[in-house]
Simulated scan of single mutants.
Amino acid sequence: MDRRGVKIRKRLLHGVLPVVRLLPLPTAARVVSGIGRLEHRMNRDLRLRFDRAVARGNEALGCDWDVEEVSKRLAGNHILWRSRDMIVDVASDARALAMFDVTGREHLDEAVGRGRGCIVLTSHFGAHMLPAHWLYRNQYPLKLYMERPRSVSRFMASKFDREGPLGQDKLFISRKGDAADAAGSILRAAKALKSGMLLFLAGDVRWRGRLTTPARLMGREFTFSSTWIALAAMSRAPVLPVFCRVGEDCRYHMEFLPAFDLPRDAQDESQAGAHAQRFLDLLEERIRRHPADSNEYLFWDDGYVAA
């Protein structure tokens, strides 16, 4: 899919969403996913690209996936992935929250209850922005620590309009920033944690430069950002992994895992890789079990434009 095709699809998606949200939300998600499945069926080149990517992942992980079925479902879920949290961009909290099936909330509340802030460690697996949406809807004091997300709901975007030293705008990061920008953003993030906030950031971001570490995913080594490791070591905030996938019922199945603490020397070069690998192993296990929610991982270095 070239960038021109992606832009056309985004315009189509933005046009369709206000209409389909009038339906029951699981039905709306099924309709949006159907756009991807239809494209998969009608576009031979796209279908072959997905088939090849799924076959490579199947071999790399030593799995026994039904390649054609996974390929079709992955194409549908890619559309949902690109729609971020816009399916649940509705006024009613009850209607939006009914789309979630949540396990492990006790782990979240235990980590928050420690009073040291909390790093909510996410990834680009499944419906990756939906945990943030759910946390906002449930009134947790959440801040995002990532590049400013595009194509999110108006509900989520409204949470970004916060000024002051702990305002959300100051916590968005940029790949184009210099060392001073990076240092300043980390200090602001650490201050947010110290004030008791939840910090939502990803542990699977491929990065270059400072605060990175090599680790493996799907049989290949990459260099990943270790910012979350440095923040956990500096702040002593617990790290709470979260994963969210699209179920067969077209609802969001979200799991909070038990929180863990990192030692103060966790960011040292000799330690960071093992901590990064710990999280990536959790991610890889979910890719094995739910390959249709693998989103971009099967396409890394394939030239496919996912968003």
Rank of each mutant, 00 (worst) to 15 (best):
R4I: 13
R4N: 14
R9N: 10
L17S: 07
V19W: 15
R21F: 03
L22Q: 15
P24T: 07
L25V: 07
P26Q: 02
R30T: 01
R30S: 10
G34H: 08
E39I: 14
H40L: 10
R41C: 14
R44G: 09
R44W: 15
R47W: 09
V54N: 08
A55W: 14
A55G: 04
A55N: 06
G62K: 09
W65N: 00
W65E: 02
D66I: 09
E68G: 13
R73E: 13
R73Q: 12
G76C: 06
L80S: 01
W81D: 09
R84V: 05
D85R: 02
M86Q: 15
D89G: 06
V90Q: 08
A91F: 14
S92G: 07
A94G: 11
A96R: 07
A96G: 05
A98F: 10
F100A: 05
D101Y: 13
V102F: 13
G104Q: 02
R105D: 12
V112M: 13
G113T: 09
R116G: 10
I119E: 11
L121Y: 02
S123A: 02
G126E: 01
A127T: 08
L135N: 01
Y136D: 14
R137L: 07
N138R: 15
Q139W: 14
L144C: 03
L144T: 01
L144N: 04
Y145H: 03
S153I: 04
E163Q: 14
G164N: 04
P165V: 06
L166Y: 08
Q168P: 00
D169H: 12
K170C: 05
L171H: 03
L171G: 05
D178M: 02
A183G: 04
A183C: 05
A190G: 03
A190L: 13
A190T: 03
K194M: 13
S195A: 12
S195L: 08
G196C: 02
L199R: 06
F200Q: 01
D204G: 05
W207S: 07
W207Q: 13
R208K: 15
R210Y: 12
L211M: 08
T212W: 06
T213Y: 06
P214V: 07
L217T: 00
G219E: 06
R220L: 14
F222G: 01
F222Q: 09
F222D: 00
F224P: 00
S226E: 01
S226P: 01
T227A: 00
L231S: 04
L231W: 11
A233H: 02
M234H: 13
P241I: 04
P241D: 08
V242T: 08
R245F: 04
V246T: 07
V246W: 14
D249A: 04
C250P: 01
Y252Q: 01
M254L: 15
M254P: 01
M254C: 12
L257N: 05
P258S: 08
A266C: 12
Q271C: 15
G273K: 12
G273W: 01
H275L: 00
A276C: 10
D281H: 09
D281R: 03
E284P: 01
E285W: 11
R286V: 02
I287S: 00
R288C: 11
R288S: 02
R288N: 00
R289G: 10
A292F: 09
Y297C: 03
L298A: 11
W300L: 11
D301G: 02
D301F: 11
G303Q: 08
